[in-house]
Nucleic acid binder design. Sequence first.
DNA 1: CTGAAAGCGCTTACAG
DNA 2: CTGAAAGCGCTTACAG
Lengths: 347, 347
Amino acid sequence: MKKVEINSIEVARLAGVSRSTVSRVINNYSNVPQKTREKVMKAIKELNYFPNVSAQMLAGKKSRTIGLFMVSSGEIAVDVLTNMMIVSVIENASDLNYYVLTYIIRDVSDEAAINNVREIFYQRRIDGGIFIGTKQDEPFVDELIAEGFIVGIFDQEHTGTPAPNRIVANFNNESGMKQAIAYLLGLGHRQIGLINGDRSRLSGMAKYEGFHGAMRQHGLEIQPDWIIDGDFTEDAGYNAIKELLQRAEQIPTAIIAANDSVAFGAVRALREHGMKVPEHMSIIGFDDHVLSEKHSPPLTTVRVDFKHLFKELMQAVIEQIEQQSDSIKEVRYDCTLIIRDSCRRLD
Amino acid sequence: MKKVEINSIEVARLAGVSRSTVSRVINNYSNVPQKTREKVMKAIKELNYFPNVSAQMLAGKKSRTIGLFMVSSGEIAVDVLTNMMIVSVIENASDLNYYVLTYIIRDVSDEAAINNVREIFYQRRIDGGIFIGTKQDEPFVDELIAEGFIVGIFDQEHTGTPAPNRIVANFNNESGMKQAIAYLLGLGHRQIGLINGDRSRLSGMAKYEGFHGAMRQHGLEIQPDWIIDGDFTEDAGYNAIKELLQRAEQIPTAIIAANDSVAFGAVRALREHGMKVPEHMSIIGFDDHVLSEKHSPPLTTVRVDFKHLFKELMQAVIEQIEQQSDSIKEVRYDCTLIIRDSCRRLD
DNA sequence: CTGAAAGCGCTTACAG
DNA sequence: CTGAAAGCGCTTACAG
């Protein structure tokens, strides 16, 4: 049933030239006369010929494929943000004529999974990789970079000796935190809590430090009981509120959540305790999740522009693949506070 | 910075054997004595050697990569279901030691995009492909199948002459529709409407026909005004209700939506007209979307098991890749009605 | 401008 | 059990 494979020899024969010439027209060499080019193109069309990509690669071409490595434990399917990131990476690559091979890492401590990641690089399946969800300076990623592979990492900054083949991208979370706190202050809040994200991740640490910095800057007292660790999930937000209500003698008038999912969880827990947002508690999230404006109440949040960030990250990675420059690349975006209905003015 | 590539010659040298032997241990040939195998494995470990996948492919091995082609117009990022499907396909492949190259088709009539799809197959980037979101008997897919490529298609059934390299997977939507109608009937509903999905897709057609069949079977009158075409999106559900309320002299007591997103849109439109679900209108969805039980009201819906379906589809595709059998494969799952709070008993 | 030929890194019949 | 060699389908210096 399967037709015999068509190769460049057959195209050459049909066009009445050599394989070298066929290759030259495919690779857009400038020294092929228009006439010859046309003959060859005609043969290519006629035979429905596509060069075998393995042969091309073996002869030195790139795969034009980027690996997307997504570390995500637990029920990823529920997360609208994950989807957006995956799709965004794929589409940005597609716009630049690259393909994406996606690999999901459920557990970074699973040696077999990490070995698969290594294998994908060493086997030359990809020209470079993008990592999402790793912690700052994850050892196996650093190792790959030390080997010379080209890697783009979201939510990471340069530390130690920056390398041109390590491209980092992150948001200015400190600034976002500052905006959130300034806004709350303007509404009369002085008792502000934080449900934090994973501090081994850059954004977790940056938000944590941004919170402390901004609070101090405004001379607001930081109440340790009101700062609760979490991991960026809805459950973490839910549990944090449960814990807070159980433990603290007094509760804050406003809480900043490490992201919108955490905020959703917090609102749910508050509701279960008969407390309404923003009447009894003001809440600010981070990200501006697609569901945030549909949430009840519509969530005030620090918006972050994932699409543009991934676009620039992808561009930088591909530029490095194609040009191998020596410059150190970092993409960084600011955030914007989006005011909706989850915070109230204190009277 | 980049180390010189390590190839099988270096491994052979270090292990004191020939490249043939190195290849034999990598490919698990049985005629290699344990001693030799160990020497070679040691050298492989020591040099951190991974065989170049292009060279392997050129020598006749498979790529162990499956293409995932997702046709999805518009804002895909909002859709939790899409995410689940993509991740489900990737993880099922991963469990079988395969990789996934994902390509998003925004518009099936975009010749450039379709050419990219063809190219991916012809270039031998993948061993087979899975299509999600195509209509029944989409011509460019049929063409690929005619060329002998191995293709798995979700929401499709065999028509014409079934081929072993066309593997279809679908849900028994007629049965789901029957369950929904029987349930409504049991609650006393006799005036039932349908907001349908895209009828050029199998599931759209199957639900449409299932609705008609079940209605007739129960001797219920089908009111053409209450059957509204849509396209499986929330907006379609919203618009359908708007249209219905504007146009119809009388409205049904219950409506079945082609999927949960459509149902959400319908509920939203009803609410805008001051109608509550289920007090003024009963609604049943399809899929059992992750958000359906969190919806207000929690949505009664026909549940469908995507994860298992994709698992079996992936298995069948890979089996065909590895064994090239002549059997015709179809995977088909039943649906189950999940009763929640969006339907009321008529009195 | 263009062809013949080497080379990319594997696998696998073949011969021993 | 194992090595030498052909072959997979390209690209690209080289020579003309």
